[in-house]
Simulated scan of single mutants.
Amino acid sequence: MDQSPPRNTSVTVADVAHKAGVSKATAARVLGGYGTVSDRVREVVTAAARALDYRPNEIARSMTTGRSGTIGVVVGDIENPFFSLAVRGITDVARQAGFTVILINSGEDVAAEKAAIRTLLAKRVDGLIVSPAKESEVEHLREASRSGLPLALLDRGSDTLDVDTVIADDRHAAEGITRRLVALGHRRIAYLTACDTPDHRFHTADDINTGSVRRRIEGFLGVCREAGLAEMEDWVHVGAVTSEHTRRIVTAMLQSAQRPTAIIASDSVIGLEVFKVHREFGLSIPEDLSLVSFHDADWTSVTTPPVTVVRQPVYGLGETAAKLLVARLNGNGGEANRIVLRTEVVDRASVADAPA
């Protein structure tokens, strides 16, 4: 008679070993994925574990292998479709590699990000993927990296951290769309971002702590200078951190005597609010106002008119960061990688010649 325990009890490694007819140490090597056993023994132990509906004790396994089987991920805003899609790329790779993802939202707040890192370290994650809230404040990330914990940066790099980094070619993308707007006769071009400053005004690109946005603004301003447009810093608007803030900023712009003829939205959440507000003012896109948004969110293709966007390799950013981290976890050494993924402009119908 089969003396195996019923399925509603906790099945142990010893139970699996007994059923497979091997030692507990041998069963532990198979179930823990370490050490060397023959293919025949592995098959017998695996079949016994399946028959007993064995579930590994993750705490015990981590004590044995030194691995928790988890990857910690910290991003700025999980409600933003950009981060949602990037995290999907991370989780797909992690799952295939046998890791579980623990996700924490920082709300683009450095203090919250530091607390998140402390929490993840306490949970003994095997590695970290972080989209830093402020590239100028990364000492907590440096300490984690110094401890030997593999770390990859997502979408936002750091000149002072020598770790794997995956970003998009944001500056090049901003230069391209700005040149196009200038070529169409636009001179009053506004750039709108959620990044903020202490006085809620933009002064120089150094004010922007988020590297991806800073590179876009640098590209935007560089092309404006090439075109002979003066004082374009005044056309960079910061602080669009919520829909209410964005609405107030856009309303003020559209009520101004110097109303912009084109707006570049730094993300699709901002772009959607711009689209909503322009209708309330009885304006028409693109006849009165051209609109370009970073990130090809679903809504941008179904509006009337559909919105021209900078399509970022968002899934690829997460996927690549996770692949780099998994490679480190599998023992791949070498210098830190800095990978730049290309963007593309998706032309739709929200951009036209500047109004007379």
Rank of each mutant, 00 (worst) to 15 (best):
K123P: 00
R124Y: 07
V125A: 06
D126A: 09
D126L: 05
G127F: 15
L128C: 09
L128A: 03
I129P: 03
I129L: 13
I129W: 02
S131N: 12
P132S: 09
P132V: 06
A133C: 13
K134I: 04
K134Y: 08
S136Q: 09
V138D: 01
E139A: 12
E139K: 09
H140Y: 08
H140C: 04
H140I: 01
H140N: 03
R142F: 00
E143G: 15
S145L: 05
S147D: 06
G148H: 09
G148Q: 04
G148T: 04
P150L: 12
P150E: 05
P150C: 11
A152V: 12
L154F: 10
D155K: 04
S158L: 01
S158N: 02
S158C: 07
T160E: 00
T160I: 00
L161M: 06
V163S: 02
V163R: 05
D164S: 03
A168Y: 01
D170N: 14
D170A: 14
R171V: 08
R171W: 09
H172N: 12
A173M: 10
A173L: 07
A174L: 05
A174T: 12
E175C: 13
G176E: 15
I177D: 10
R179T: 08
R179A: 14
R179W: 00
L181Y: 06
V182I: 15
L184Y: 09
L184C: 00
G185I: 03
R187M: 05
R187Y: 00
R188W: 01
I189A: 03
A190P: 07
A190T: 04
A190S: 15
A190Q: 06
Y191T: 10
L192M: 15
A194E: 08
A194I: 11
A194S: 12
C195P: 02
T197R: 05
P198R: 14
P198T: 11
P198W: 10
D199M: 06
D199A: 04
H200P: 03
R201P: 01
F202D: 11
T204C: 00
A205P: 09
A205H: 09
D206M: 09
D207K: 12
N209T: 12
T210V: 15
T210Y: 11
G211P: 06
V213K: 08
V213Y: 01
V213I: 14
R215S: 12
R216L: 02
I217M: 10
G219N: 07
